[in-house]
Simulated assay, not measured.
Amino acid sequence: MSDPDRPPVVCLCGSTRFMDAIAHVAQSETLAGRIVVRPEVVSSARSPHGAVLDQEAKTALDRLHRAKIRYADEVVFVAPGGYMGPSTQAELVYALDLGKPIRLLTGSKEHH
């Protein structure tokens, strides 16, 4: 049973190398009246702001993000230039398996 007073929840997915783009989409989605959940911790060695995490912590973050996908009413994939790494691809398969509505943002056009 859904609450008609609860705004829709969107989960943002994408490579953490695109955290600036993810933040931009989060702002747009929030201004559109949606509750946004997204990755918050960058665990990549490529990022100057990334945390150095062990495999156990990375696995826990993956589980947490899958919970965000389950909680969401819609899953939005932020994929500048169409890029999706292995983790993001796995999240896409997971969201599709759950039957979640999907939106793909590649920077040039939006796909449903």
Results as ranks from 00 to 15, higher is better:
Val76Asp: 01
His49Lys: 07
Asp5Pro: 00
Pro7Leu: 10
Ala51Ile: 03
Arg46Trp: 10
Cys13Tyr: 04
Lys58Ser: 01
Gln27Ile: 06
Glu40Cys: 07
Leu53His: 05
His112Tyr: 06
His111Ile: 14
Glu110Leu: 13
Pro86Glu: 14
Gly81Glu: 11
Phe18Trp: 12
Gln27Leu: 13
Arg17Leu: 06
Ser44Glu: 07
Lys109Asn: 05
Val9Met: 09
Ala57Asp: 02
Leu12Glu: 04
Met19Val: 02
Leu92Ser: 09
Ser15Gln: 08
Leu12Val: 09
Arg66Trp: 02
Val78Ala: 03
Ile35Met: 13
Ser108Pro: 00
Cys11Met: 04
Glu91Val: 01
Asp73Phe: 07
Gly50Gln: 04
Val42Ile: 10
Phe77Tyr: 04
Glu56His: 02
Ala51Thr: 06
Tyr71Pro: 00
Ala51Asp: 07
Phe77Asn: 02
Ile69Cys: 02
Ser28Cys: 11
Ile35Cys: 08
Glu74Ser: 01
Gln27Ser: 09
Arg38Gln: 15
Ser87Cys: 06
His112Thr: 11
Ala90Thr: 10
Ala26Gly: 15
Lys109Leu: 02
Val25Asn: 01
Arg6Trp: 02
His24Asn: 10
His112Gln: 10
Leu104Cys: 04
Lys58Asn: 07
Met1Ile: 07
His112Phe: 02
Val25His: 06
Gln55Glu: 15
Gly82Ser: 11
Ser2Ala: 14
